[in-house]
């Protein structure tokens, strides 16, 4: 009984320190969110519609959306493009983070590399989209220059029967998806790498020293020490990439407007189109948002669950230790 009281004595600071976040959240986030949620159950569409009602079948919009072919395609695309970009992204980021934090293999100029790798993230999505559009331009563009000259070369040495024609990258689905995934990779791998590095640097060097004394090699150190200790930050990376990836909007929208033939139509682009391009189907957009939200929440919950045990156990342990310390301190105070 006594300990509980003492534990609580600091609890009010938890509330106090949360006030700024909560106030701003209530003001700027809650209203728009509730507004969106509610719209999903109504017939609110059209510009400045002040006369909307709840539908008799509250889930009518949700059913329409789940039946919507473009929505289904957009979900598939989103997941596909996310997997295509995230797999190489996390692999590369982990690899680079390991290289740059390696204690025994100092890479010269690693400061330079670290700085440079993050740079693509600095450019606005709009600029990147303009640039890649120019790169893959058809029928004349840098990539097609390469295609044509390689084709010419292969033709000359009799591998190809006739020289290749320029390839319209942006009319075929798979290339378009690959390009979008590559742009996502390029703009985010540095970001992920930096997050992981800062996580690794947060691990106490003592542990590494101990490992080195035990004679473990770099590979072992990485898997046995770095990765497990990185778990909380790794969870952060996975969750934010998942959320960011499933909400992917800028590049698909700006690069090719979700085309060709809906190949790069992501769910967020779909939602935006519902709400703003032409018919102001706010209710359907809201319903689609809610569905996307549920999907993201479920996937995140699964991730949390997978990564849960040690993270949580550790957390609990620290909490207990803190309580014990508090108890000690309290006791100390009493005796003073």
């Amino acid at each position: 009984m006594k300990t509980k009281l003492k534990g609580v004595s600091y609890a009010k600071w938890g509330y106090i320190f949360s006030i700024p976040f909560i106030v701003i959240f209530l003001l700027f986030s809650l209203y728009p969110t509730i507004y969106t949620t509610i719209l999903g159950f109504t017939d609110c569409k059209g510009l400045n519609n002040t006369d909307w009602h709840f539908l008799d079948d509250p889930f009518a919009n949700f059913k329409t959306i789940l039946d919507n072919n473009s929505f289904k395609t957009s979900l598939k695309n989103t997941v596909l493009i996310w997997v295509l970009n995230f797999t190489p992204q996390i692999t590369m980021a982990l690899l680079l983070a390991a290289i740059f934090t390696s204690h025994r293999n100092e890479i010269k100029g690693k400061g330079f590399f670290k700085v440079v790798f993050y740079m693509p993230n600095i450019i606005t999505a709009a600029s990147v989209a303009i640039l890649f559009n120019a790169l893959f331009a058809y029928p004349v563009g840098p990539m097609n220059d390469i295609v044509v000259s390689v084709g010419e070369f292969l033709h000359k040495i009799n591998i190809l029967d006739e020289p290749t024609k320029p390839y319209n990258f942006l009319v075929y689905k798979v290339p378009a998806q690959l390009i979008v995934a590559f742009i996502q990779f390029l703009t985010w791998y540095g970001n992920t790498m930096i997050v992981l590095i800062s996580g690794i640097l947060g691990i106490s060097p003592d542990i590494y020293e101990a490992a080195e004394i035990d004679g473990s090699n770099g590979w072992q150190t990485f898997w046995k020490i770095t990765v497990p200790n990185l778990k909380t930050v790794l969870l952060y990376t996975l969750i934010t990439s998942l959320v960011g990836g499933l909400n992917m909007y800028d590049i698909p929208k700006l690069f090719n407007e979700g085309g060709p033939d809906n190949a790069t139509l992501t769910t967020s682009v779909f939602i935006y189109n519902q709400a703003f391009s032409g018919n102001y189907l706010y209710n359907r957009a809201a319903a689609a948002s809610m569905i996307l939200f549920v999907i993201i929440a479920v996937l995140s919950a699964i991730l949390f669950w997978i990564m849960r045990d040690r993270d949580e156990a550790r957390f609990e342990k620290e909490k207990k230790m803190a309580r014990r310390e508090a108890k000690k301190k309290e006791a100390a105070n009493k005796w003073q």
Binding site: S29, S268, I271, L292, F293
Partner: peptide, 25 residues
Amino acid sequence: AYDWRLRKPFFTLIMCVLMIPAQVT
């Protein structure tokens, strides 16, 4: 740093906010 009753719900709330698609809000 603190152990308070609404800590977990608060964290869950933050995670939910994180997941809301921004285009429509």
